[in-house]
Simulated assay, not measured.
Amino acid sequence: MGAKLTVIENRSNNDMEIRVWVPPARPDKFQRIMRIEAKGWKEINSKNFSFGNLSPDEGFMSTLLMIYVDGVYTGNYFLPTHLRKYAKVICDINEEGHYVIQGIKPTFDFCRFKF
């Protein structure tokens, strides 16, 4: 069984939350939170972006990932369809203090075996 993974690396000095939000719900009614510590990283499985009876592909189309730092929305978001293109997404802060999101590599399949 294979699973699509994306590595998200937080190179900033602030802890970051990525909240999964499914329209038409209000942005404060998020489905899931992924926390990434400052200078840390996390492997995110594509199944984290599908909900209810939606398949992963349908879930990707109707899901937003909103970035919060210290509990405050940064104004940055990206679609999981963009995440599927990268095996590594780097989140950093530029000189003006704005979050910068940069994709690095194409996606990869990671296989796990269950016994």
Rank of each mutant, 00 (worst) to 15 (best):
D15P: 12
V72H: 03
L65P: 06
W41N: 04
P27G: 02
G75T: 11
E58V: 11
E96R: 02
G2K: 01
E58T: 06
W21A: 02
L83I: 02
A25V: 03
A38F: 13
P23Q: 01
L64M: 09
D15N: 15
P80C: 04
A87K: 07
T6I: 15
V100S: 03
K39Q: 15
V100Y: 11
F110A: 00
M1F: 13
I8G: 02
I36G: 01
Q31V: 12
P27T: 10
G59T: 07
V89F: 11
L79I: 08
S12H: 09
C91G: 01
E17Y: 10
F78I: 04
F108V: 11
N94A: 04
E37G: 14
I101F: 14
G40E: 13
R35W: 14
E96N: 10
N45C: 13
F78L: 14
C111A: 06
D70I: 07
K114P: 15
K105Y: 14
T81P: 04
S62Q: 13
W21Y: 08
I8R: 00
K47Y: 14
T74V: 08
I67H: 02
T63F: 13
D109P: 12
M1I: 10
N53G: 08
P23R: 00
N13W: 13
P106N: 00
S62T: 15
A38M: 05
A38Q: 06
M16G: 01
K47S: 13
P27Y: 01
A38Y: 05
G71H: 06
I93R: 06
Y86C: 13
L83Y: 07
I18Q: 01
F110S: 03
Q31R: 05
V69L: 12
E43F: 14
R84G: 04
V7I: 13
Y77L: 09
N14I: 10
D28P: 05
L64R: 00
L83G: 06
G59H: 02
M66S: 05
K88Q: 11
C111E: 13
S46F: 15
F51V: 07
M61Q: 12
L5H: 11
M1P: 15
A87H: 08
V100D: 08
I67A: 04
V72S: 03
I44G: 00
R35E: 11
H98S: 07
V72D: 05
M1V: 14
F78G: 02
D57P: 06
I44A: 04
R35K: 10
D70S: 11
G52Q: 07
G71I: 14
A25W: 05
Y99H: 03
I33D: 02
I8L: 13
D92V: 03
W41R: 04
F110V: 10
R35M: 14
K4E: 14
F49G: 03
